[in-house]
Design a protein around this nucleic acid. Structure first.
Lengths: 149, 149
DNA sequence: AAAATAAAAGATTTTTTTGTCTTTTATTTT
DNA sequence: AAAATAAAAGACAAAAAAATCTTTTATTTT
């Protein structure tokens, strides 16, 4: 569904947002540990998110990453996905046809149109804030129980 | 969504089935041409489908691939996907958690459960036969118009 | 100003996926 | 039986994705 890059981007964003809700700025080391991702790779991904103004990064001592409350409210999952994976998931044909459309439909065109539409709706309607509060409240997790300390 | 391998597997199966409906056996060269796929790679994939008894292969002159009518009726898309991609698409967590579940849900668990369920339903309810007849009747296509001769 | 901290940038490396090439095996036709 | 045909098998290669390492830049604290 998502690339590894995208999975890490979403999880890192949620973690940063949840910590920002508690007024805590977090460093790459902590983020990577909390979401069970490779540190250097995650750093690269955060650079992309930062350039797309989806997270704020602050250099130097007491630096790290944070997301302002208004930003996490307005940021939808779709923006994160688009920043790292492009809009393939929103538009690509399920069977890889270059120009799959109602006029030139692949055998799964109609079936997949519905699913792709549901995915798009979900990503465009889900805010970073609601995902962060779910994590903060202990309802959801960013790692499997096995992976937790 | 699907790997390239899986896209080729599905398209090749549909093409073989559609030709079998007209009592025509087809060779790799023809298949690869008709679905715009790399020939040698497609041959490898067909070996897997053949070992899984999803297509019949016949060696020698007038040989090639075919699918019996009863088989294309009973074969669901899910069987083809499982044969080449495994069951990742049916069970994997959207954010890559090893043990994402109702007890230990990732932030997108509930939202994705619905989508994954829809995908599973679609793949398990769609038969190769209906996809093949759609192609035969000219309602659907395996290549983009640009790619067609 | 110097030292320490933390992210940014850039160059590489590893792994996985995708794709190719050559040889072998099975089958059919002559 | 020999020649021709077509898939199977196996080894290899290229491209893309995932991951790492080193150096630089910005900021803060002492």
């Amino acid at each position: 569904m998502f690339s590894k890059t995208c999975e890490y981007a979403i999880k890192a964003s949620i973690y940063i947002a949840s910590q920002s809700l508690e007024n805590k700025r977090v460093g790459i080391k902590e983020i990577a540990h909390e979401i069970s991702s490779p540190e250097a790779f995650t750093a690269k991904i955060l650079q992309v998110l930062s350039k797309n103004h989806l997270v704020d990064s602050i250099k130097g001592p007491n630096g790290g990453f944070e997301i302002q409350p208004e930003k996490m409210r307005s940021t939808k999952l779709s923006a994160i996905v688009k920043a790292v994976d492009g809009d393939n998931i929103f538009i690509n044909c399920g069977l890889g046809l270059k120009n799959c459309s109602a006029k030139n439909p692949c055998p799964l065109h109609n079936q997949f149109a519905k699913i792709r539409n549901d995915i798009t709706k979900l990503l465009e309607s889900t805010s970073l804030e609601e995902l962060a509060t779910g994590l903060t409240s202990g309802l959801t997790f960013l790692t499997s129980v096995q992976n937790q300390a």
